[in-house]
Nucleic acid binder design. Structure first.
Lengths: 106, 106
DNA sequence: TAGTATACCTAGATGTCCTATGTATGTCAA
DNA sequence: TTGACATACATAGGACATCTAGGTATACTA
């Protein structure tokens, strides 16, 4: 309906990965924490999104094993991913401002 | 993924109807105008939404014929609709604030 | 040793919105 | 006067994002 609504999940994931690499489960926890429990993403949502981002080369993945023997897949955002993130952020600002204007009864 | 994302189209429509009654085609034009061309809603999106809102008693409709002979369906928001709108607005604020926090790298 | 947390994964359903199309009338220019 | 475009309504079918529900496996804790 809008010119283009920012696909929120992938945008949020890219934003989280901007600072440092993270593994899937951690992304879910961080989103929950930083959003003060507004975003409670399901694993069934996140993992397919991560695979998509990897396929599109917006993130890279590396496998690592903890001292306790757990295997994790760490994701890091690529240059391309950062550019896409910037684009999505702009779209979000536009979208958000427009909604606010309508709600305010401009 | 979020606690609940506000269904944007119905929220925006209710918000537009808050001030005065409007007919479908006019809603599309007003959305475009007030959002500065960010929201270019399609008729195929709006009309089913209006029918749904009517069915849920969030709006009422009345038919009117212009002096030129055109038939229009004017929609007005109900008390129930106003309550739902308020709810959706709160959800939007919560959602929007959370996204901003994540993007800011909180 | 049973339950919970961690950590990954996929298939299929759902819901929102879009594309495409249809009907009918009004207006304006060629 | 006719052909193009705007107005005004409508629906069917598809695309896409996210959710539900399930699965596997290991580690910790009561």
């Amino acid at each position: 309906m809008a010119k283009k609504e920012p696909a929120s999940v992938s945008m949020l994931v890219l934003a989280l990965l901007k600072g440092r690499e993270m593994y899937g489960y951690q992304i879910i926890e961080e989103l929950d924490r930083r959003s003060e429990h507004v975003f409670q993403m399901k694993e069934g949502t996140l993992y397919p999104v991560l695979h998509g981002l990897e396929k599109d080369r917006l993130v890279t993945a590396r496998e690592a094993v903890t001292d306790k023997g757990r295997t994790r897949r760490y994701y890091a955002v690529t240059e391309k991913g950062l550019r896409v993130l910037e684009e999505k952020e702009k779209e979000w600002q536009t979208f958000s401002r427009a909604v606010t204007a309508i709600l305010a009864g401009a």
